[in-house]
Design a protein around this nucleic acid. Sequence first.
DNA 1: AAGCCTCGCAACCGCCGAGGG
DNA 2: GCCCTCGGCGGTTGCGAGGCT
Length: 264
Amino acid sequence: MGRAPCCSKVGLHRGPWTSREDALLTSYIKNHGTGNWKTLPKRAGLLRCGKSCRLRWMNYIRPDIKRGNISPEEEDLIIRLHSLLGNRWSLIAGRLPGRTDNEIKNYWNGHLSKKLKNQGLLVKEAVTRRLTPPDRNSKKKKKNINNNEAKCINTENVKMNKIYAPKPTRIYPTYWNYVTESNEETEGTNGRLDSGDESSSGNFQEILSCSDNGEEANLLDVNHYLGSDLELVNCDFFLEDHEVLDRVYQEYLQLLNVETDKEN
DNA sequence: AAGCCTCGCAACCGCCGAGGG
DNA sequence: GCCCTCGGCGGTTGCGAGGCT
């Protein structure tokens, strides 16, 4: 028996979100935080499935999302990270503050892949590298992998390049604490703007102690969305763009070295 | 002005892994 | 060890906007 498709339930809305639905979701998350996406829509008064809510929040409503054109620096970083990570959009997005995996994926598919192809820079090896190749012998039904270059796995390469991908950790352009009066007293999910796991939380705490090169514009944006019950904590992700890019790139090179050493 | 095409992007689909019972 | 649920991810689809003929 296959799993029933999400949103197949009669009565659940599908398709584009209305501003009213957005407002309901935003309001609910503002007051209660994320977590338990399954029951969230019901509690928020939304006729949507949890998945749909999560997607809407993660890709569109979340206050830290940076909208607008991808800068040349970001584009360069995407290309470099993609050459390292392959189609691990969430990991790539995690290194691009304010960008979502969906946005990067769309940008890559609609823009960069063509561009690189035209320039002759998109070589198959770079595209096909995956860090943690799925177990193709799993008993579960496998997805069709026929027509996408990115999925054409050369098993030899996989063996050679296999490293353990770090847990995706989203980096926010600005970090904040919820300081709502209800935070400590209620469910404990308040204050989490991402339903991240322990590792994310740990990272979050580390980030909170970062230095102070914040940007006022971002602060204003966040307050615009979530009101005054937030206290922004600045960090050093607003160094000069090239510094950030270089740091991230170096970080990944180190990661690759460490993990390949482990393999050997 | 109308029809067609391309592009951007929001949203959906289905699979996977983690974790709990 | 098995099964189930849930959150997360990557691939794909579909639609609207804008450009082109």
